[in-house]
């Protein structure tokens, strides 16, 4: 309860900061518009205004502060403008019966979600397979593990356009091309977490399996795999967030298919800042929902396995 209050305070402070930042960010444009409408602006000359700092201009024209929140293409849209755009492109579209039209964020969110989930599934599978072979083969551990760690210092997001082009020329489906990029980002946390998890049974437990003359397979299924579950879920949460980032960036290169990344790109081409921010908040919501869903699955699974009360 107490922490809920402090979280709300922090969020309120962030939103307050956002509203405050809107004034200096948008003041130049507001001054131009006010002057066109015939209002008094100090200083009256446009070149002089351009030379002034944003904050100085904002202090000199307190009368303009209200108009900075009502622009069509503000430098920094206010939270309520972004909220209105989000509402218009999601529920507003559903109400008009066009939930899956090209202008609806639901459609774009769905495109991103499908690429994210595909990449996440690939990445989790690859991660688990790698982790199992690393735990069981010392040669794998010594030769592959350093390269897996090094692979993450390669900024894959930068290579995304090339992977997309190459896979497209091999006439691989676009969805799979996006999935591959998501996979590259999401397999790493799974490998690291699973290796840790599969090695988490202590010497006593391993000895116990030996006393029962359990085979390697039996040790794996009955001891190693169950005890890795908490580690797996922790890394799945990181993995799904990384996978979403991969999907959004892949969509920058495959923007003809739509998706939240494509909305970002289109918004930046046409200066539609409100659209950029709403796509960004849409992606944030998607990330929150995905992480929350995995948290839910984590709670249910671990409780049934007896890790939690």
């Amino acid at each position: 309860m107490k922490s809920a209050l402090s979280i709300l305070t922090v969020i309120a402070a962030l939103i307050g900061l956002w509203y405050a930042a809107c004034v200096p960010m948008n003041i130049h444009e507001a001054a131009i518009q006010a002057q066109r409408a015939g209002q008094e602006v100090t200083p009256a000359e446009a070149p002089e205004r351009r030379k002034m700092g944003r904050i100085a201009l904002a202090v000199k024209n307190p009368g303009l502060w209200r108009t900075v929140y009502e622009q069509d293409r503000p430098q920094l849209p206010a939270p309520h403008q972004v909220g209105a755009e989000l509402w218009k492109t999601t529920w507003g579209m559903v109400e008009r019966g066009r939930a899956f039209s090209k202008r609806s964020l639901i459609l774009h969110g769905w495109i991103t979600l499908s690429a994210t989930l595909l990449g996440f599934a690939f990445g989790t599978l690859l991660g688990i397979v790698l982790a199992v072979s690393i735990v069981h083969s010392r040669a794998m551990d010594m030769s592959v593990m350093p390269w897996i760690i090094a692979s993450q210092t390669v900024p894959i997001l930068a290579i995304a356009p090339m992977i997309v082009v190459v896979l497209a020329s091999l006439s691989v489906d676009d969805l799979i091309a996006k999935g591959v990029i998501s996979m590259y980002l999401s397999f790493f946390p799974v490998v690291v977490g699973m290796v840790k998890g599969l090695r988490s049974p202590d010497a006593m437990q391993m000895d116990q399996m030996k006393t029962w003359s359990a085979s390697r397979a039996q040790t794996f299924w009955k001891l190693r795999l169950p005890s890795s579950a908490p580690y797996l879920f922790a890394s799945l949460k990181v993995g799904v967030a990384a996978s979403l980032i991969g999907a959004v960036v892949a969509e920058l290169s495959l923007s003809q298919d739509g998706g939240l990344g494509a909305r970002l790109l289109a918004g930046s081409y046409y200066g539609q800042t409100v659209q950029i921010w709403s796509a960004l908040l849409g992606a944030a919501t998607l990330a929150a929902v995905l992480v929350w869903a995995i948290g839910l699955a984590q709670g249910m699974t671990l409780r049934r396995m007896g890790f939690q009360r």
Partner: peptide, 12 residues
Amino acid sequence: ALPIVGMAPILV
């Protein structure tokens, strides 16, 4: 955990 890279077009 958010896709902060998305801020890039705004900051540019």
